[in-house]
Write a protein that binds this DNA or RNA. Structure first.
Length: 422
RNA sequence: GGAGAGGUGGCUGAGUGGUCGAAGGCACCGGUUUCGAAAACCGGCAUUCGGGUAACUGAAUCGAGGGUUCAAAUCCCUCCCUCUCCGCCA
């Protein structure tokens, strides 16, 4: 959510920002409602002031005087009630519009409609040249009995999977390595809830717009698609000590996504599944653009370094306006080379929000001047499994059908390669 | 699932209809004292929205929403949450 004052004072910026994100929202209508809101608020407050004055007088009045004042207050009460009802109606529309107003994208965000318009800003690593026809991860993993997709769908339904044998072991190895790698960087490790109440989804910006992408329980709770939701909810409605900022979390959770809009895409394999596991980096920092940018770059670089240590070719793109979420100011995607598809596929995403999330979540701190401020927030994927397996396995496949284990994973895996089966 | 208790400021904790935005304590800030610190003492210290250059001032907020009343932290209703005991249980 944006500050209404900011919207009022920067109407054109907000309108241009929404346009850049290809998000429809009627700012003019919002401002009209806001004028009305202020007008009615003054009206209501004047009436209340009158009532408060009378109430105080009654407390110290004699019986006759008291009866007289009470009598005269009935008309004030009527008028107040009418104005209050009017204000309530306006406020309802006002709130509906307010949660639809997108955060303003950064100047450096390129124009564009969709992920096709994202701009590559970095490439790393040599794209492997195979002297044989590289297989995709599905075939390789089936060959090694690392995954069972048929029983996955039998038991879990569409997009279901079992990781087995070296498939499971490789996932665990990555988890262990990721902990070792990221926890060197002074994060607070957390295992966070996936089953989360509605409030934290509203606060982090996944609701009300993202209802279709979320699984919902019969109790009205939702399953989170990322540990970001519970991690951001951690300090919801709290005033935190400035001295603890920046607060850096490395959060783990199972993640659940309905993939409602992706019916035809990636229907087989481990790229797009309903249930997966993710380590997420989340930061709360002081309310300054410079701090936000600094930590955003830092987060993204952490993940790049992690991928570099696995020696997998990747590129980093800056997402275009049309590919940004409601609250995001700027986002980088890191995409890993997938030989089986001869393209890069997204593995991680790093965004910052300024105070868009913390305003909704009401996460504040007191600055040095004693002023209450909404903290800034940003987050980044550290590593998702099983999606990361796709790139590891496809890039590290060998002509004889075996799979080399990336050097950094060997100690966790206990071997150098997943050997060819007979 | 059954029974009970409770949600008040950064924390703790009084307050059962009328200057209560809310006592006291802790924490924090400033001062006195000290070589310095601690202790002690004195003073200050909630947030949000509106008006005013400012001093200041109006409104709202005691889990959320509704109701009763001239007036609600206080009474009533609904919901949410927390705790305790019993049951069940990885």
């Amino acid at each position: 959510m944006l500050d209404i004052k900011f919207i009022r004072e920067n109407k054109d910026v907000v309108i241009a920002g929404a346009k850049k994100k290809h998000i429809e929202v009627d700012i003019e209508q919002l401002l009209k409602l806001d004028d009305l809101r202020k007008e009615l608020q003054v009206k209501v407050e004047e009436k209340r002031a009158e009532q408060n004055t009378a109430s105080n007088a009654i407390a110290s009045a004699d019986d006759a005087e008291r009866a007289r004042i009470i009598d005269s207050m009935s008309s004030v009460k009527q008028a107040l009630k009418l104005s209050e009802e009017e204000l309530a109606k306006v406020m309802q529309d006002w709130r509906t519009l307010m949660v639809q107003v997108p955060n303003v994208p950064d100047m450096s965000v390129p124009d564009g409609d969709s992920d096709a318009d994202n701009q590559e800003i970095k490439t790393w690593g040599e794209i492997p040249k195979f002297d044989f026809e590289p297989k995709n991860h599905i075939d390789i993993m089936l060959d090694h009995n690392m995954v069972d997709l048929e029983r996955g769908t039998k038991v879990a339904g569409f997009r279901g999977y079992y990781l087995k044998n070296d498939g499971a072991r490789l996932a665990w190895a990555i988890w262990q390595y990721a902990q070792q790698f990221f926890l060197q960087k002074e994060f607070t490790p957390m295992i966070v809830p996936s089953l989360v109440r509605r409030e934290a989804f509203l606060g982090s910006g996944y609701l009300p717009q993202g209802e279709d992408d979320l699984y919902k329980t019969q109790d009205g709770d939702y399953l989170a698609g990322t540990a970001e939701v519970a991690t951001m909810g951690y300090y919801m409605n709290e005033v935190i000590e400035k001295s603890t900022l920046p607060e850096k979390f490395l959060s783990f959770s199972p993640c659940y996504r309905r993939e409602a809009g992706a019916h035809g895409k990636d229907t087989r394999g481990l790229i797009r599944v309903h249930e997966f596991y993710k380590w997420e980096q989340v930061i709360l920092c002081e309310a300054s653009h410079e701090e936000s940018v600094k930590w955003h770059e830092w987060l993204n670089r952490n993940t790049e370094e992690f991928i570099e240590s696995l020696k997998i070719p990747y590129h980093t793109v800056v997402n275009c306006g049309g590919d940004l979420g409601l609250g995001q100011v700027k986002k980088y995607d890191i995409e890993l080379w997938v030989p089986g598809e001869n393209t890069y596929r997204e593995i991680a995403s790093t965004s910052y929000f300024h105070d868009f999330q913390t305003r909704r979540l009401n996460i504040r701190y007191k600055d040095d001047a004693g002023i209450m401020r909404f903290a800034h927030s940003m987050n980044s994927t550290a590593v998702p499994t099983p999606r990361i397996l796709v790139s590891i396995i496809e890039n590290y496949q060998r002509a004889d059908g075996s799979i080399e284990i990336p050097e950094v994973l060997r100690s966790f895996m206990g071997k150098y390669a997943i050997e060819k089966r007979n």
